[in-house]
């Protein structure tokens, strides 16, 4: 008779053995701590980042001796003093901050109608088209896209050639601040749409219909119903675009023509061009601080939006 083996197949025995091992490693009395165990990978990851930040903080307090190209053994705040007093770093910080704010505002303005149409359209074909158009740039990458703009907007690019057809002389469309802003908005648009879309999906269409049936035209419906309910999406998208723009390197480097550096470009220069890793570390810490303060301000004023995973601010 084969009953015993059939009644208790090999797979079950393996599972029993695995359970036994698991129970030995993580006994039942630890069960209440199991959810915290799930956090372990994230804690490890964040821990590594914190360790890196500690090292960067240590480097930021050491100055470079240019006679030996070694760092000082003793700590000082000389790098912070330089970062806060040298005009170059103030100009670059100001430019980065203003650009991040402008790019965030412009991206949200452009991203909202796109996301709204993508969510609300009744045409599956149009929705697919919008989704593909949204995801294609992700596959191309930031640097290639920036170089693409050089080809399109350059002196001998498509735009200037088209202008030439109507008698307009070639004009400098790239290597300036507006070009950097334009490149950043184009780069950030998909991020913002992807952050806005879930928030818009969560707004029941019936609410808009109800507003209409109560006499509100589409403008009033948009201002008094859609926009307030889309706020979590705006906050989430805004925070993501703001931080990515503030810390961007490639677009200012490629479309700025060398004269529109952001903080990240200044950090690169210190690490790789002048070998002053102490000053580079100082600028990196200040960038982290600036970004954290901005995000903290947004969270304090408006809540965490979609980044709060659906929990609204009390």
């Amino acid at each position: 008779m084969r009953a015993a083996r059939t009644a208790y197949p090999l797979k079950w025995r393996v599972m029993d053995a695995l359970e036994g091992v698991a129970a030995a490693i993580w006994p039942a009395r630890f069960r209440r701590a199991t959810p915290y165990l799930m956090l372990l990978p994230a804690v490890l990851l964040v821990g590594l980042l914190v360790l890196g930040l500690i090292q960067i903080a240590d480097a930021s307090l050491r100055t470079l001796d240019t006679t030996t190209f070694q760092f000082s053994d003793n700590y000082s705040i000389a790098n912070f003093r330089r970062a806060l007093t040298e005009p170059l770093f103030l100009v670059v910080a100001q430019r980065s901050l203003i650009a991040a704010l402008i790019v965030t505002a412009m991206t949200l303005v452009f991203a909202f109608p796109y996301a709204y149409l993508m969510v609300r359209t009744r045409s599956p074909g149009l929705r697919k088209f919008l989704l593909i158009a949204l995801f294609l740039p992700f596959f191309i990458g930031q640097v290639v896209r920036a170089y693409g703009w050089l080809i399109i907007l350059g002196n001998q690019g498509m735009v200037n050639e088209a202008l030439g057809l109507v008698g307009v002389a070639p004009m400098r469309l790239i290597y300036n601040y507006p070009a950097v802003l334009f490149g950043l908005v184009q780069y950030m648009l998909p991020f913002a749409v992807l952050m806005l879309a879930p928030a818009l999906t969560a707004i029941p269409e019936e609410l808009e219909a109800a507003a209409g049936s109560l006499g509100a035209n589409w403008v009033r419906t948009f201002i008094h119903v859609v926009l307030p309910l889309a706020r979590p999406g705006f906050i989430g998208a805004g925070v993501v675009v703001l931080t990515l723009s503030l810390t961007d390197f490639a677009v200012p480097a490629i479309l700025g023509g060398g004269s529109q550096d952001f903080i990240a470009n200044a950090i690169y220069d210190q690490f790789f061009r002048t070998s002053d890793q102490g000053l580079g570390a100082t600028l990196a810490l200040m960038l982290v601080a600036l970004g954290s303060i901005l995000v903290g301000l947004v969270f304090a004023l408006f809540g965490a939006g979609t980044l709060a995973m659906g929990r609204s601010r009390a």
């Binding site: 470079l64 240019t66 006679t67 190209f69 040298e86 005009p87 170059l88 100009v91 670059v92 430019r95 060398g258 004269s259 529109q260 550096d261 200044a266 220069d269 061009r273 002048t274 070998s275 002053d276």
Partner: peptide, 18 residues
């Protein structure tokens, strides 16, 4: 050059980025 390069680069950049 190596002892002053950092300062010269910063000065040049400060002028050009200003």
């Amino acid at each position: 050059q190596v002892e002053n390069e950092s300062e010269w680069f910063s000065k040049f950049k400060a002028i050009m980025q200003g």
